[in-house]
Amino acid sequence: MKLLRFLLFPFAVLYDAITRIRNWFFNVGILKSTSFDIPVIAVGNLSVGGTGKSPQIEYLIRLLKDDYKIAVLSRGYKRKTEGFQLVNDTHTAEDVGDEPLQFYKKFKKDIIVAVDADRTNGIQQLLQNDNPPQVVLLDDAYQHRKVTASSYILLTKYNDLYVDDFLLPTGNLRESRRGAKRASVVVVTKCPENLSKSEQGKIVRKINPKAYQKVFFTTIAYDENIKGTDDELAIADLQHKEILLITGIANPTPLLNFLKEKKVGFKHLNFPDHHNFTHQDIENIKKSFEGLPSQQKIILTTEKDYMRLEGKIDQLNYISIKSKFLSEEKVFNSLVLEEIKKRS
């Protein structure tokens, strides 16, 4: 695979030229970018997949929902519908995507959730709502230059920093590292919880932020209780059960390590990120579960996968996650709130 990526280097150079020209066209106004009178916060990354956008969006929802009417707008990756959709109780993951459905089910009393590949049209539709939002959170929209967000939050993984990566197809970057300059905040995600200040300092120096940028560090915090069929179970209770673990996310390694640290044994069935589970997949999962010898057994999955598996499998449970700041959480909150007040 490394050799193949090296051989594809000329295509990466071509891709760089195309994305650089595209960004220049937006910067000088040849391509139109629309700005809005309300605060629009774009959360995204330079690389493909797995940087923790969903936990970061949920963190912002929790931060803002008591003081502002929030809307989350996503493209609805791998959905089977088209155009603008306002997420409601009748929708499935196939209709609107797993992550938007997750946001809706978790926060539907407090926020609006919508999907539209055309973010400009999506925001315009939201503002025509009878109860329009005061703040829009754009999920995975860092490269969506047709909207000029009021602020950009750039995520990069601790063990796969964008400054160490290269453009597709040689590397995993969607655009050049130069795109990082659009961000006012850079969040290094999925850090070890015991990451020292000196190590954080080394990463900050490597990222070399602009004077107007601030770098933060977060880790993934797992809920100590599982939800679903057995929603009274704690993680510690899983030590006494046989677990069939189902994942369809970009990087399941942190979850695997967490369960191992908690001394939870499991059989793991791994699927691609955002996998649409077929009838045959479901049958294979059921057979694998039936093949576990213990009578004390459950199926465990991620919250995102639960959105695509709910109602298709019995004994289905999920573990949810949150984004947790290693330090300076109040500083991050203040930066976000000040930006919103400035734009409101």
Rank of each mutant, 00 (worst) to 15 (best):
I226W: 04
K78A: 11
I41L: 09
L195H: 00
S344D: 01
G311T: 02
G248A: 11
L269A: 10
V28W: 09
W24G: 05
V186H: 09
L316V: 10
R343A: 10
R205N: 14
R343T: 09
R182D: 03
C191E: 00
T19H: 05
R62F: 03
A221H: 11
E328L: 04
I285F: 11
P100R: 03
Q143Y: 00
T120D: 13
K342M: 06
P252R: 06
R75G: 14
L137W: 03
I112C: 03
I21W: 09
K202P: 09
Q134S: 14
L309A: 10
H144W: 02
D130A: 14
K109V: 10
K322H: 12
K2M: 12
F217Q: 08
R75W: 13
L255E: 13
V13P: 03
F271A: 09
Y318D: 08
V96C: 08
R62E: 12
E339M: 13
T302S: 06
N317R: 06
S196P: 05
Q280P: 07
I282H: 12
I226C: 02
D281I: 13
K214Q: 14
S327F: 12
H274I: 11
K146I: 09
L337Q: 13
D165G: 02
R343N: 03
Q143E: 05
Q315F: 11
D231R: 06
A71F: 12
L3Y: 14
K260F: 04
L309F: 11
V163E: 04
P169M: 06
E199A: 13
I111N: 04
E329R: 00
L14D: 07
T34K: 15
N194G: 02
K341E: 14
E328N: 13
G49Y: 09
S151M: 04
K197Y: 10
